[in-house]
C-alpha cells in the first residue's frame, strides 16, 4: 500500500453524494424541521425554562438566591469536591490508560469492563455502598465512631461517592485514543535513549492532550452535578454538607421555585461551558 499513494488525494466522501443518494428537497426539509422540533421540544425547552423561571420574580430575587449564605457554602462545597475528585480520577485515568494500551496482558478486556462498571451502576447504589462500608451499621462503622471519625454524612463520604461515580470518565476517553495511536512513537523514543517520564511528557502527552482535556471536562461536569449518589451520603445538613444540586432540591421542595431555578441556572452555566469546550476541542481535533 505504501507505494500506491495517489498523487491526487481523493475527494472527501461528502461530495460522493449524488442526487440519487439524497432525498428530494421536500423530504429533506420536512426531516430537518421534524428534527428541529424534536430538539426544541425535548432538549431546548428544558434549558429555556430554567432561565425563564429563575428570572420570573426579577433580578433581585435571582441575585438574593445566589448570594444567600447557604447557596454560597453549597457552591464552595461543590468546588471543593470537584477539586479533590477530578485530579485523583485524572491520575488514575492516565495510568490505567497507559497500562491498558501500551502493553499486552491477559484479562485486558475484563479490566476495561471493570473500569466501566460505575457507569452501569445506579447513582443511588453508588451512594448506598459507602453507607454499607462506613455507615454506623457498616463494616467500619463501630471503629470509626470509637475514633470519632465521620465519613458518611460528611465531606469524605461526598468525595468518595463522587469518586465512584466519575471514576471511568478520563480512562474511558483515553483508552480508545491511545489504543489507536499505538506504541511506535514511544518505542522510537526509547531507542533514542529517552526514559519513562521523558517519553510520557514529550511523546505521549502531546498526542493525547485534547482527549485528556475532554475527559477532564466531562469528569468535572459530572463531579459538580452529581445528585443521586451524593444525596444518599450527604445527610443534607444546610450550610455544611449541601452541594449545589442538593440545594436546588431543597429550595424546590420548600416551594422557593425562583430561588431553586436561580441556583439551577448556575449548574446550567456549567453544562453550557462544558458543551462549548467540547465542541471547541472536537473542532481542534478535526484539523
Amino acid at each position: 500500500m505504501a507505494g500506491t499513494v495517489p498523487l491526487h488525494v481523493p475527494a472527501p466522501r461528502k461530495s460522493v453524494s449524488s442526487p440519487r443518494t439524497t432525498e428530494s428537497k421536500a423530504v429533506k426539509w420536512v426531516l430537518i424541521s421534524l428534527a428541529g422540533l424534536v430538539l426544541l421540544w425535548l432538549i431546548a425547552l428544558p434549558l429555556i425554562i430554567v432561565l425563564v423561571e429563575s428570572l420570573k420574580r426579577g433580578l433581585d430575587v435571582y441575585w438574593a438566591a445566589l448570594t444567600d449564605p447557604d447557596a454560597a457554602s453549597a457552591l464552595k462545597l461543590t468546588l471543593l469536591v470537584a477539586a479533590i475528585t477530578v485530579p485523583l480520577n485524572t491520575i488514575f485515568g492516565v495510568t490505567a490508560a497507559w497500562a491498558v494500551t501500551k502493553f499486552r496482558f491477559r484479562g485486558k478486556g475484563f479490566l476495561i469492563t471493570l473500569i466501566d462498571l460505575p457507569f452501569a451502576v445506579s447513582p443511588v447504589i453508588g451512594g448506598l455502598i459507602f453507607i454499607l462500608v462506613f455507615g454506623s451499621h457498616g463494616w467500619f462503622g463501630p471503629w470509626l465512631s470509637n475514633h470519632d471519625i465521620k465519613i458518611v454524612f460528611a465531606l469524605p463520604g461526598i468525595v468518595l461517592a463522587t469518586l465512584f461515580i466519575t471514576f471511568p470518565f478520563v480512562a474511558r476517553e483515553l483508552i480508545p485514543l491511545m489504543e489507536e495511536q499505538g506504541t511506535q512513537e514511544e518505542e522510537a523514543a526509547i531507542t533514542l535513549g529517552a526514559h519513562g517520564w521523558q517519553i510520557f511528557w514529550r511523546v505521549t502527552l502531546p498526542n493525547i492532550k485534547w482527549g485528556l482535556l475532554y475527559g477532564i471536562i466531562l469528569c468535572n461536569a459530572r463531579a459538580m452535578g452529581e445528585f443521586g449518589a451524593v444525596s444518599v451520603v450527604s445527610g443534607h445538613i444546610r450550610g455544611e454538607t449541601n452541594t449545589l444540586p442538593l440545594h436546588v432540591e431543597i429550595l424546590y421542595n420548600e416551594y422557593q421555585f425562583s430561588a431553586s431555578f436561580a441556583v439551577a441556572s448556575l449548574l446550567l452555566l456549567l453544562a453550557l461551558v462544558t458543551m462549548i469546550v467540547k465542541s471547541l476541542l472536537l473542532r481542534k481535533n478535526a484539523h
Binding site: L218, P245, L267, L270, A271, M275, K278
Partner: peptide, 20 residues
C-alpha cells in the same frame, strides 16, 4: 444543533428534573 444533543450528558440531573 449538534452541540445541543450533548446537553442531557452535561446537565446535572436535578436541574433536568426541576425544569421538566
Amino acid at each position: 444543533f449538534d452541540a445541543l444533543i450533548d446537553l442531557p450528558f452535561a446537565l446535572p440531573t436535578a436541574v433536568a428534573g426541576v425544569s421538566l
